[in-house]
Design a protein around this nucleic acid. Structure first.
Lengths: 351, 351
DNA sequence: TTGTAAGCGTTATCAA
DNA sequence: TTGATAACGCTTACAA
C-alpha cells in the first residue's frame, strides 16, 4: 500500500508469507505450482509490502526487455517540420502501452551512427525489437538486420526497399495515382510537383509513380526536388510559376512546402484555386488553418503507429508476420483545388 | 570483428585471454587492477570475439540503466500540433547520446495513468531519472517525486509550479512582458490574446503576467481561452474581431492558432498588419511559410532539451542542481506586425 | 597483479 | 505442492 523506501524483493515477500522465493515467483506470475491458499497469501503480502519486480533482474532472467527501439535521425529541422514522426510515436506508444512495452529512443547524428546504434542494441540486448524508418535505396540497415535474424525487426517503407524484411508498406505509388487522377478529373493537363529530397526512399517511389502515371494519362508533368523546408518550397514554387506554360496545379510532398507555395502564389497575385490548384501530401493542422484551406492527401498515421506496434509484438512472440498495408491515403478536398483556368486558353494567356 | 550469433560473455573473453573474468571486467572498464599487458590482451580478444556488455546484467549489477524516462500525455492532436515536444526530444536525445544514455518513452492516457507509469518506473528501477513536463497547478506528480527523493527528477516549468524540485524554468512572465511592450512601442493600446487551455500551468502563469503588465501600462486587454487547435483559434479570432472597439493586435499562444487567426482576418478582409497585428507564441516553420509571415516569440527549444538532459545527468551523478533558466525567448519580427490603424480613429471607424 | 566468490533480483529446474 | 539451487552476465570486495 505505502510505497517503500528500501527495495523489497521476492525474498522479503517470501519471508513475510512464510514460503520460499520460488513459491513467491510462481504465485506472482500466475503460474501453476502453488496452492491457491499460498498464492493468495503471497499476493496479499506482496501488495502489503509494495513489491514490484526489478526490471533489470527480470530482463536478465528472461532475456526480455519489454522495450522497442527506434533510432531517429537527428535533423531537428525535419523532425519538427514533420508532424509525421510525433504522430507515429503517439500511435506506437498507445499500442505498446496496452502490453506494458515502452519505446526506447536514440538519436543518430549520421548514417554510420544509425547503424552502430542498432548494432549496439542488438549486441547488448537492450530492446526486444527494432523499428526502421526512412529507408533509403540500398540502406545498410537492411544488411545488418539480415545478418541478425534473431532480432525482430519491422520496416515502415515501400516493400521494394526492405529486402524481404517484415514490412508495413505505405502505398506511395497508389497515392500518386489518386492525386493525379483527381487533378485530371478536374481538367488539369499540366501539373507539377515539389518533392522531398531525392535520396529518400519514398521520394524515389513517388518520382517513379508520377512519371509513369502522368505519361500514361498524357499529362504534362514537371518535378522539382526540395528539402521540406518552407524556403525550399517557396523557391520551387517561384520557379514553377515562371515556367511557360505554367502548371495549373502543384502537388507538394509535405504541408509546410504547400503552405509556403500558397503564400508565394498569393504574393504573386496568382489566385488559388482559380489560377492554381494546390495539394499537400500528408495532412495536418496547417492545411486546415491556411487560407484558402489546403486540399490534402491524408492518412491515419496514428493507426499506422498502432499497427506497427502490434506487428512488432507479434514478431517478438515469434509469430510469422506477413507484409501489411498501411491504412490507405484519403484525399481531403478543401478550398485550394478546382478546375484549371479555362483549360485550352490558360496556356496562351501567359507568355 | 565479425558479429557473433551466440552471445559472448566475459567468461568467453576470459578463457580466450587466459585470465579470470574479473580481470576481464577490470580491463574492459578501464579500471586499475590489471597489468597493461593483460589489459591489452583482453581488449584484443574482446574485440576479436565481438563482445558487448549485456545491458540487463550491467543494469542489475550497477543499478544503473542509462535511460531517462519521459511520460507523454496521449493527445495525438496536441502532440502533433506542437512542434515543441519533438524539438525537445531532439535536444534531449542529442545530449543524452553523448553520454550513451537513451530516452525511454511511455504514453499516458490520462492523469492517473501518468502517475502510475512514474510509480512503476520508480519501483522497477527502469530509468535513472525522470523528466516532468506540462505541470499543472497542484500536480500530483510533485507529491510523488517528493515521496521518492532517491529518484532524480527534473521539471521543465515555471518554478512556482514545481514545489522545490530541480527545475528548468521557462520565463513565460518575462516573455509576456516582451510582447506587450513590443506592441505598446508600436502604438497598440488595445490588445487581445488567444490562450491555451486554462488548466495548463503555463497558461496560468501567462494569464497572470498579461493581466498585471497590461494593467500597469494602461493597455486594454482581453483574453479568450482556446485549445491550440486551428478551429478554436479561428473561433476565438472571429469573436475578437467583432468586439467593439476591436483589438488592434492579437497574440496567439501557439502557431497553429496564429495561422488560423490570420486566415480568418484574410477572409473578413481585415488587413494584416495594417488593421490587425498578429504574434505567435513559439516559432515554427508555419510562421515563415504563412503570408504575411508571422511575427513570433521564438525560443531555442533544442537547447532547452540539451540543457535538461545535462541537468538530469548531473542529478544522476549525485550533483546538486540549482534551478536553471531556459534560453531566453526572442522576438522574431516578420510581416504580421505594425503600428495600429491611425491610433485614435481606429476605435471609431467601426461601430 | 591476479583469481575466487559473493552479490544484484529474477526465473526455472529438479529433488523432496 | 514445496523449497533448494542453479542459471542470467556483470561488478566488486576480498584473498591469494
Amino acid at each position: 500500500m505505502v510505497a517503500q523506501k528500501a527495495k523489497v524483493t521476492i525474498f522479503d515477500v517470501a519471508k513475510a508469507s512464510g514460503v520460499s522465493s520460488s513459491a513467491v515467483s510462481y504465485a506472482l506470475n500466475g503460474k501453476p505450482g502453488v496452492s491457491d491458499a499460498t498464492r493468495e497469501k503471497v499476493l496479499q503480502e506482496a501488495r502489503k509490502l509494495g513489491w514490484r519486480p526489478n526490471g533489470a533482474a527480470q530482463s536478465l532472467a528472461q532475456s526480455r526487455t519489454r522495450r522497442i527501439g527506434l533510432v531517429l535521425g537527428y535533423d531537428p529541422q525535419l523532425l519538427s517540420v514533420e508532424p509525421y514522426i510525433m504522430r507515429l510515436i503517439s500511435g506506437l506508444g498507445s499500442a505498446l502501452e496496452e502490453r506494458d512495452y515502452s519505446l526506447l529512443i536514440r538519436m543518430s547524428m549520421d548514417d554510420d551512427d544509425d547503424v552502430s546504434i542498432l548494432e549496439d542494441w542488438i549486441a547488448t540486448g537492450n530492446v526486444d525489437a527494432l523499428l526502421l524508418l526512412n529507408l533509403e535505396i540500398g540502406d545498410p540497415r537492411i544488411d545488418l538486420m539480415k545478418a541478425n535474424p534473431q532480432m525482430p525487426c519491422l520496416a515502415i517503407a515501400d516493400a521494394s526497399l526492405t529486402g524481404g524484411l517484415p514490412t508495413l508498406t505505405s502505398d506511395d505509388a497508389g497515392a500518386s495515382g489518386t492525386m493525379i487522377r483527381f487533378l485530371a478529373s478536374l481538367g488539369h493537363r499540366n501539373i507539377a510537383r515539389v518533392a522531398g529530397p531525392e535520396e529518400l526512399g519514398h521520394s524515389y517511389i513517388r518520382d517513379a509513380a508520377f512519371s509513369e502515371i502522368t505519361t500514361e494519362l498524357g499529362i504534362r508533368y514537371r518535378c522539382l526536388h526540395a528539402d521540406y523546408t518552407p524556403e525550399s518550397g517557396a523557391d520551387a514554387t517561384k520557379r514553377l510559376l515562371s515556367v511557360t506554360p505554367r502548371p495549373t496545379a502543384i502537388i507538394y510532398d509535405n504541408d509546410v512546402m504547400a503552405l509556403a507555395g500558397e503564400s508565394v502564389a498569393s504574393m504573386k497575385n496568382v489566385s488559388v484555386p482559380d489560377e492554381l490548384s494546390i495539394i499537400s501530401w500528408d495532412d495536418s493542422f496547417m492545411n486546415v488553418a491556411a487560407h484558402p484551406a489546403i486540399t490534402a492527401l491524408g492518412r491515419n498515421v496514428l493507426e499506422s503507429g498502432r499497427l506497427a506496434a502490434q506487428l512488432m509484438l507479434k514478431l517478438i512472440d515469434g509469430e510469422e508476420v506477413e507484409d501489411v498495408q498501411e491504412p490507405p491515403y484519403e484525399l481531403v478536398e478543401r478550398d485550394s483545388t478546382g478546375p484549371p483556368p479555362r483549360s485550352k486558353f490558360a496556356a496562351h494567356s501567359q507568355r
